[in-house]
Design a protein around this nucleic acid. Structure first.
Length: 212
DNA sequence: ATCCCGAGGG
DNA sequence: CCCTCTGGAT
């Protein structure tokens, strides 16, 4: 993608969706952290289905701890990778209670020190909860960045660095959500719907898919 | 590089 | 059946 295409690219995304937001359901920063941790290799729809009941019963680190491993597994069993996620979330809650007074930390270092929280999850929390211009490169953002040519890096970290360099400051906070939603509903992995894509004029993707 | 792992879609 | 879904730990 040409350098001069980047501003119109994001201007088009902004025009189509002026105030993008995550589709994960949460009512506190802790619930956001838990929901993002659970969302690895899973759909938001599936995570929300489980967390709606879970958070109604246990919406704080101590309340999750009180569920115990078996109890927590019971609530998230319908989500993929649930054994690892239950164990990691419990350990994370234990650290939050014992080392952070039950409050989600605001630094990348402290976030990534939590079990089950890697670079991508930390970036999402920093962006969504604390308004920082991070680029959380998940499966959607990686694919969209490569296809469009916005950031052609060969691995998630390379793409993240390119996005941080190339996305204009005015778009840096919302870019995360625009790219995610574009990947989820338009630039899909199997069958991209190029005919309904608002950034198609600036996209490098060859042989754009026609309308059905 | 490999494992984890259920639900939904094609 | 196979692929995909807001990855992280080993």
């Amino acid at each position: 993608m040409k350098k001069e295409s980047i501003v119109p690219f994001f201007a088009a995304l902004e025009a189509a969706n002026p105030t993008p937001r995550t589709e994960l359901e949460y009512t506190s920063v802790f619930e956001l952290l838990a929901a993002v941790l659970l969302s690895a290799q899973a759909t938001d729809v599936g995570v929300n289905k489980a967390t709606r009941k879970l958070f109604a019963l246990a919406g704080s680190p101590q309340a999750i701890l009180d569920l115990g491993l078996e109890g927590l597994e019971g609530h998230i069993r319908t989500i993929g990778l649930y054994k690892d996620k239950a164990r990691h979330l419990l350990q994370t809650c234990r650290i939050l209670v014992e080392q952070h007074a039950g409050v989600v930390p605001r630094t990348r270092e402290a976030l990534q020190a939590l079990p089950g929280v890697g670079r991508k999850t930390a970036n999402v929390v920093l962006n969504v909860a604390f308004g920082q211009p991070t680029m959380a490169v998940d499966t959607h953002i990686f694919r969209v960045s490569n296809r469009t040519g916005l950031a052609p890096g060969k691995n998630p970290l390379a793409v993240e660095i390119q996005l941080l360099e190339r996305v204009p400051p005015a778009y840096a906070v919302d870019a995360h959500h625009w790219l995610i939603l574009l990947g989820r509903y338009v630039c899909q992995a199997r069958k991209p719907r190029c005919w309904k894509c608002v950034v198609a004029p600036w996209c490098d993707f060859g042989s754009k898919t026609p309308a059905p």
